[in-house]
Design a protein around this nucleic acid. Sequence first.
DNA 1: CCGCATCCGTTCGGATACTG
DNA 2: CAGTATCCGAACGGATGCGG
Lengths: 134, 134
Amino acid sequence: MGTMTAAERRAHAKVEFDSYLASCASRHVLDRLADKWVTLVLCALGDHGSAMRYSEVARQVAGVSQKMLTQTLRALERDGLVSRTVTPTVPVTVDYALTPLGESLLEVVRRLKRWADGHVHQILAARDEFDARG
Amino acid sequence: MGTMTAAERRAHAKVEFDSYLASCASRHVLDRLADKWVTLVLCALGDHGSAMRYSEVARQVAGVSQKMLTQTLRALERDGLVSRTVTPTVPVTVDYALTPLGESLLEVVRRLKRWADGHVHQILAARDEFDARG
DNA sequence: CCGCATCCGTTCGGATACTG
DNA sequence: CAGTATCCGAACGGATGCGG
């Protein structure tokens, strides 16, 4: 395997770049929120108030595949943002809820949503004007 | 064309889902921020304080390809978050700066970063514990 | 009921080369 | 200097089928 074209150079550049990103700890969290489904799941759990079954979350979010939902919930659990409780009933029961850390994050996300709701018309207007010019 | 396998069903589901998303206007903005480079560019412009040349931004962000940088700047310009000023000198000069709307958003993003910086250790700790259990 | 594994189309994003 | 255009590998994300 004498060919080490893209993969190698990529790896090198990645290390370099990751060290840059690592210096900015908050990027890890931003990257989490960057996920399309994370905010939706977070808000679903937050709006509901109490723990939700897996299928409840799926119904609430309503466009997510179970692959993405499971993946998202796992990631959130891993980061300590949601808790996962398995009750060994006959068909197993699994409940998800926000942890205190998750609720703390939800507050910040809600601020973001509030900003978005308050400024979305300006953004859409700017977008229209920009597109009109071509 | 009797075959309308994935493409068709996909299209149908997408319409359904998009109407769900459309009801939540703030998603548009969240999706913008979801972009990996948007927050970095936003912060670069914000930290610098005044207008920056294209190459200055590139140097500051330091891991972005020119393709992504241009694409990101265009998107931000389109949304009215940054202004793009072309000065027709001999080698053309282009300056980018935050608009008032962009600065307004930056404030919210900074809140998010502050939360992240304040809680990243909890997240990393949770992650380690989770990984330790396997 | 909850979730994992596989397959596969779509999209993202970097490298490179070229223009004004 | 500040882009644009093309190519291509890598990663995302949905559909389906199986397992506990």
